[in-house]
Design a protein around this nucleic acid. Structure first.
Lengths: 210, 210
DNA sequence: CTCCCGTACGTACGCTGTACGTCTCGACAG
DNA sequence: CTGTCGAGACGTACAGCGTACGTACGGGAG
């Protein structure tokens, strides 16, 4: 058994989250998985919150942000958004952890820097770039949370909604659209909204330069 | 002191969340606020999870969805989205609770029904209406979470980012745009993205009917 | 009056994060 | 070789959590 260290602890935490969900994470549980005393963890991690920060940072730094500065800005932002969505695939149950922690570290700020720089190079003004950036962030995070089921409200998937279950009098639309509501191709849905946003932004840019 | 009942318990829970945040919520704490034994709560609420569902439902049912079926669909969806955002104003610290619980009840499904019906009446197809609905939900929820600070990652507000704090070599854009990043008129930002989305959707509709 | 049931409540169990003290072991100074 | 020291592993302990269970009381039904 290799010596205990921060990296092994973080890896065990991620593994535990993916196996049993974020609620299952406890210092005792992680220690047990590592076959180690609980308090030994505290020699390498100051507290649970810092451990979750490290989890977030690790996952974030695994995302492959391949950016081609020569490509059109529309393709670049699309690629960046898609890269971010990869988190939901590579670490689905950790997504909420990643998204809900502010990281002041390089791993957390690099995606921001890239996005802003892309928008600036596309020709948007300072204030404009930040606004557009925020719109994309909101959409991407909202989409991720729906995909991993953290915000099931108003996004029922899983056949949780059956046409028979809903009162056709009160909710005729939900009843009628139940087949479409209960199935969701996350990638297609994500791209649909993403293209919509990019198209709208491109429209603004074109209209302003004329 | 009036007799204990479900309504009073839910009200106490909401009050506690708004005063001290969702993490401060515990059955013992709520019971103490009501000057009542902990286990007395369980005569009116089956468990903590159900209590939080009730909290979500209560807040949701307070949202005023004034919908004018005669108005253009663009105005209607804008109004619905803004109404939803009111949650962040009326119960900021409860927002995450509301958004993260799936409600099968009428209070949870009514907004969905309204949105879908608006989109259908605007002329969108079944599948299309659901897709567009999902895009709006993602954007609205993402925006709410940023506004209430649940997803501070990539959305640093509060002057948390100062131009001096960031390495100008590694993050030139973040440094240059720090003034804009550190201040955020949530309502204006929300409307900016909302109008962008509505405009894009309207474009799709116009293009298809021609 | 008696019975009964809903409500309030105390106790208890297993879980949580983590502060603190102890013990062991490898490295290095003399 | 021996004495010392620091770092890491670990046990114990405490306050707090959700809630299962048993008990006591008070008012309406028969």
């Amino acid at each position: 058994m290799p010596p205990l260290n921060r990296t092994r602890i973080v890896a065990a935490a991620i593994d535990l989250i993916e196996r049993e969900g974020a609620d299952a994470v406890s210092m005792r549980r992680i220690a047990a998985d590592l076959e180690v005393g609980v308090m030994s963890l505290y020699n390498h991690v100051p507290n649970k919150s810092a451990l979750l920060d490290a989890v977030s940072e690790t996952i974030l730094s695994e995302v492959e942000f391949t950016d081609d500065p020569a490509a059109p800005w529309t393709d670049r932002v699309r690629m960046q958004a898609r890269a971010f969505r990869q988190i939901a695939h590579s670490h689905p149950r950790s997504t909420m952890v990643v998204v809900s922690r502010q990281l002041k570290s390089a791993a957390g700020m690099l995606p921001v820097e890239r996005a802003l720089s892309t928008l600036r190079e596309a020709g948007f003004g300072e204030r404009e770039a930040v606004q557009i950036f925020r719109v994309f962030i909101a959409y991407v995070i909202g989409s991720l949370l729906r995909e991993v089921g953290v915000t099931p409200t108003f996004a029922p998937v899983h056949g949780a909604i059956r046409a028979d279950d809903v009162d056709a009098e009160l909710f005729p639309q939900i009843g009628a659209l139940a087949p479409h509501l209960s199935e969701c191709d996350h990638e297609a849905e994500f791209d649909f909204g993403l293209d919509l946003l990019i198209e709208a932004i491109a429209g603004r840019l074109a209209q302003r330069t004329t």
